[in-house]
């Protein structure tokens, strides 16, 4: 006789029909859950090796890279003070120029996502930026999305594209998000950005289609001179969710 609970197991990725040991979970499921939580915690806390990443980007893509840190001095402060993660550390030194765009690679809540996806995503993205005067890539640690606004002002770029690690879930610890802001400067609201999330092949969006969508959106933003909720070039692109201040 077939197990009637198989109907549940086949119907969803949710953790249904786990069985019981008394009232509690069987040991295997207990440890499976703990393992998933551990992976998510490690994704948040294992630090981004910024110099190594900078070298990797320079070597693989042949572009100049700068490293900065936010005003949050460590992970604990970063998690408690999102305001500090949105500001550059005092004394940050970025060369000023005249650019249309700066691409920022930020650790966010998942440095793991950056380790896995930043270089291939950058490769696809940079290949689609013909006609843009692009500043050196900036690798930022303890970074929130809005740190990109300050970086854009510092390097003299009109717009900013932030590639950042998203908050890990139990089943997706390495999801990369891309946030584009036209006319970036301090004080921009999240509703003035466009966001593409869940970039993480093979499970989520692949690099090339993500870069296609972003390039299309950015071209449209440049034409209309705006970004955010007012810009809906593609149904896949939604305004960025409001981040707590």
């Amino acid at each position: 006789m077939s197990d009637p609970l198989d109907a549940l197991r086949h119907a969803t990725r949710a953790r249904v029909a786990l069985g019981r040991a008394g009232d509690a979970m069987p040991t295997g499921h207990l440890l499976t859950l703990r393992q998933a939580h551990a992976a998510a915690r490690d994704a948040v806390h294992d630090p981004l090796d910024a110099p190594a990443l900078a070298q990797e980007i320079e070597g693989a893509l042949g572009v100049e890279v700068r490293c900065v840190q936010s005003a949050a001095p460590d992970r604990s402060r970063y998690l408690q003070r999102p305001d500090q993660g949105r500001r550059l550390a005092e004394g940050s030194d970025l060369p000023h120029g005249e650019h249309d765009l700066v691409v920022v690679v930020g650790d966010g809540l998942s440095p793991l996502a950056i380790h896995r996806h930043a270089v291939p995503m950058l490769r696809e993205m940079l290949a689609r930026l013909e006609g843009w005067r692009v500043a050196p890539v900036v690798v930022a640690t303890q970074a929130r999305v809005a740190l990109g606004d300050e970086i854009a002002t510092a390097v003299g770029a009109r717009s900013v594209l932030v590639l950042i690690g998203e908050r890990p879930g139990m089943s997706s610890t390495d999801s990369l998000g891309a946030y584009f802001t036209y006319d970036a400067r301090r004080g921009r609201r999240d509703s003035e950005r466009n966001c593409l999330s869940n970039i993480r092949p093979p499970y989520g969006v692949d690099y090339a289609p993500a870069a296609d969508t972003l390039a299309m959106l950015m071209a449209e933003a440049r034409r209309l001179k705006l970004s955010g909720t007012a810009l809906k070039a593609d149904p896949a692109l939604v305004a960025a969710p409001e981040e707590p201040s």
């Binding site: 949710a14 953790r15 786990l18 879930g169 139990m170 089943s171």
Partner: peptide
């Protein structure tokens, strides 16, 4: 929620 893991809102 099933298994304590909300697969939509990504929290426990």
């Amino acid at each position: 929620v099933p298994g304590g893991d909300d697969v939509m809102l990504h929290y426990q």
